[in-house]
Design a protein around this nucleic acid. Structure first.
Length: 743
DNA sequence: CAACTTGTTA
């Protein structure tokens, strides 16, 4: 997976090759309107044909008329066939005296590109050149504000609207409502709504959307019921409103009611309903709609609907069909790419997601904020920090001022933290102007994961000083910080304050952290008291953490009962069997080990293989235990031998008790030596310059043995080694680990 | 010219 790094220089919009004479006044309108070159414009479906038609215009002198130019720009800006905005901008910059229509057209283009800063700059430029905005100007500008969720700018635009008396315009009025509604300012939206006696469907629909996105489905429904003449879009808005709030049943019910009332569904309806199916897992209804669409409505060629189907199948587990639909598209748009990438991420197919992302870049499609929001979690899971850094640079350069700036940065924090670079995560966090609660949470979790409980708590007090109320997730973050660092008393204190100080009902995760802390400390009684006290059933994670605690404290009896529970809840999870068998092995009870192994084999369950990966030069290399598949396998094993010699010289004695099977000591050592993380480290050592930090990601937890070995390796080779296991990070440096052997 | 489709943190 090689990405150009550092990212290629940004492509400057191709500069326009012609010189323009200052445009005086346009020739008579009738001549222009019927000019053959202009009728060619509407047939342009590609960038190339657009350029050709533009050349024609230059030949015939049309390029010196504002009328023809406005038509050209309009086409660039609204064409669904290609992204003509960069071309529009470069043409625009050459126009000597753009008229209001041209300014408005540019604003129209920028409004749909979700680049608020450019739109505002364009508006300021226009006004400072003495142009007076009209009723066509504001809807575009307000749409920009609505899309980028910037209420302050929106309010200033509102003031301008009032100054010019434009608020009586129907379109401006609706745009204002929509802007406030989309910013979550429903009271302001409602105020604007009430200033007019005209209750047109469009305004009502804007309010429905606003109420719904705030989670107030009841007000949305009330609004919906008040509309006397519903059109398709208002039905769609209500359906979408239900979908957004998890009311899939209601959404599908409303869809059926709509069909009964003979309202013909349009593209938007199907997209909303399919999204409801995708998110609720109603693959059956989705398939029905698929048949319906294919048979009657002739929507088969609609890109939006095909995209919706890709979303449906990829989220409901039929990735094959989804990618088939995707491949079958002759013309993919950015949403098609995003949907499938998001589907892969949703199905935990992270490698596929990254590969598709790279294919997207090669295809020339420009990723947007949504793309990055789907790709970054994949990087985070795989530890693909080079790609993550590339994306970071891309965001800073290309996605400046974009709608989801805060969400993007939060996702970056998470990516850096999970890829082992907690400093980079912290830097992103500190650079954020508007920190959302999610960004604070992501940072707290990052510190917790890295065993830096102090930093997590410092951050929490900083957050409180900033007047931000923590939510349930914040407190899970703090508790997990305690549990990763073994801070039992602090954990108890926080756990109490969840209900007492913050008035939050503890969820399973809060109990889980507390139980983990108690188990770790060997306080099994107290842990079991919590289990009895909590209002819900413990999940597999809780039993598993108790089982691990039993292993630490050598409590065989309890281990058996916890393992029993775990097997009841998650009979498919081979991990519980392996863990229990390891506990028996530690106690030397080999008959029990053999018995467990038989059960495992009998059920046809496979042990989840330990898998470690390391990213070298933007390529993620994966290793499984004893794996010889890597092209440089021979060098890797030679390195392993060298490492073992040096380890032995340093006095390292492998602890062989954790191996699943009972076998001769020598073979056991062999199996341990080839644990996947060691292969990854060996590969890292031979593939990087001396002194380079190595970062390894493992799907399971590190075993004691590898942990000890890695500590020594960091000293022997003078390398900082960062290892992420299933739950947390270990920073090995100079023979010690940041976890202080507590994990 | 406005209202309805892709998405992030635990």
């Amino acid at each position: 997976m090689a990405l150009p790094y550092p990212p290629p220089p940004l492509a400057v919009p191709s500069s326009y090759p012609f010189h323009f004479l200052p445009s005086s006044s346009d020739p008579p309108y009738d001549i222009l309107r019927t000019h053959p070159s202009l009728s060619l414009l509407s047939n342009c479906r590609t960038h190339q044909s657009l350029r050709e038609t533009h050349a024609q215009m230059v030949k015939t002198g049309l390029h010196n008329t504002n009328y023809a130019l406005s038509k050209l720009l309009e086409l660039c800006v609204v064409s669904p066939h290609f992204d003509g905005l960069p071309y529009a901008v470069s043409v625009f910059e050459t126009i000597q005296e753009p008229n209001l229509l041209i300014w408005n057209t540019m604003l129209r283009g920028l409004a749909s590109s979700s680049d608020l800063v450019s739109a505002l700059e364009m508006y300021v430029r226009m006004v400072s050149l003495g142009h007076v905005p009209n009723a066509y100007t504001f809807p575009f500008l307000l749409k920009s504000c609505a899309k980028s969720k910037t209420f302050e700018e929106g309010r200033q635009i509102h003031a301008q609207v009032m100054k010019l008396g434009c608020e009586v315009d129907r379109y401006v009025h609706t745009s204002l409502i929509s802007m406030y509604a989309r910013n979550g300012r429903l009271e302001d939206a409602r105020k604007v709504f009430d200033t007019s006696s005209q209750r047109d469907v469009v305004s009502c629909t804007a309010l429905i959307t606003g109420y719904a996105s705030r989670g107030d489905v009841r007000s949305a429904r009330k609004m919906f019921d008040e509309i006397t003449e519903r059109d398709v879009v208002s039905w769609n808005a209500m359906i979408t409103g239900y979908v957004e709030n998890g009311g899939y049943e209601e959404a599908l019910e409303l869809f059926k009611e709509m069909m009964r009332m003979n309202v013909r569904p349009d593209e938007g309806t199907l997209v909303s309903v399919l999204s409801a199916c995708a998110q609720s897992g109603s693959i059956e209804l989705g398939r029905e709609i698929h048949t319906l669409v294919d048979d009657h409505h002739g929507f088969g060629s609609s890109l939006k609907i095909v995209n919706a189907f890709i979303g449906l199948y990829s989220k409901c587990g039929d990735v094959e069909i989804a990618s088939g639909l995707f491949e079958g598209l002759s013309c993919k748009d950015v949403v098609s790419w995003n949907t499938l990438i998001g589907g892969y991420t949703h199905m935990n197919l992270y490698k596929e997601a990254l590969l598709l992302f790279q294919e997207m870049l090669r295809s020339g499609e420009s990723p947007n904020d949504v793309t990055m929001l789907s790709v970054l979690p994949a990087c985070a899971h795989l530890g693909a920090i080079d790609i993550g850094r590339w994306i970071h640079v891309y965001i800073d350069k290309r996605l400046k001022g974009v709608t989801n700036g805060s969400a993007l940065r939060t996702s970056l924090i998470d990516m850096y933290a999970k890829c082992g670079d907690i400093e980079a995560a912290h830097q992103v966090f500190n650079s954020m102007m508007h920190k959302s609660l999610s960004s604070w949470n992501a940072m707290i979790f990052g510190f917790a994961m890295h065993g830096r409980a102090n930093a997590a708590f410092d951050l929490f007090s900083r957050m409180r000083k900033n007047g931000i109320e923590p939510d349930d997730i914040t407190l899970v973050g703090l508790l997990s910080a305690c549990s990763h660092s073994g801070l039992l008393d602090l954990g108890r204190h926080i756990f109490k304050s969840v209900t007492q100080d913050y008035n939050i009902t503890p969820k399973l995760e809060h109990y889980g952290c507390m139980i983990d802390l108690l188990g770790h400390a060997g306080l099994f009684k107290e842990a079991e008291e919590i289990i009895h006290m909590m209002p819900m059933e413990p999940d597999g994670v809780i039993w598993c953490s108790l089982l691990k605690a039993c292993k630490m404290h050598g409590n065989l009896e309890l281990a058996e009962s916890f393992a029993q529970k775990l097997m009841e809840i998650e009979p498919e999870n081979s991990g519980s069997y392996v863990l229990l068998s390891n506990i028996y092995a530690t106690a030397g009870r080999w008959e029990d080990v053999a018995r467990i192994r038989e059960v495992l084999n009998g059920k046809g369950m496979k042990k989840v293989p330990g898998c470690s990966s390391i990213e070298i030069d933007s390529v993620v290399h994966e290793f499984i235990i004893g794996d010889k598949l890597h092209p440089q396998s021979r060098e890797i094993y030679r390195m392993l031998e060298e490492m073992d010699v040096l380890l032995e010289e340093a006095g390292f004695v492998p602890d062989t008790s954790e191996v699943l099977q009972e076998m001769e000591e020598e073979r056991k050592e062999g199996a341990l030596r080839h644990h996947s993380e060691k292969l990854a480290i060996a590969f890292g050592l031979i593939s990087t310059k001396p002194g380079t930090k190595l970062t390894v990601v493992k799907n399971l937890r590190v075993c004691r043995n590898c942990h000890e070995a890695t500590k020594l390796i960091s000293k022997i080779y003078n390398r900082e080694i960062v290892a992420r296991d299933r739950t947390r990070f270990h920073h090995f440096r100079d023979g010690v680990c940041s976890c202080c052997d507590y994990w």
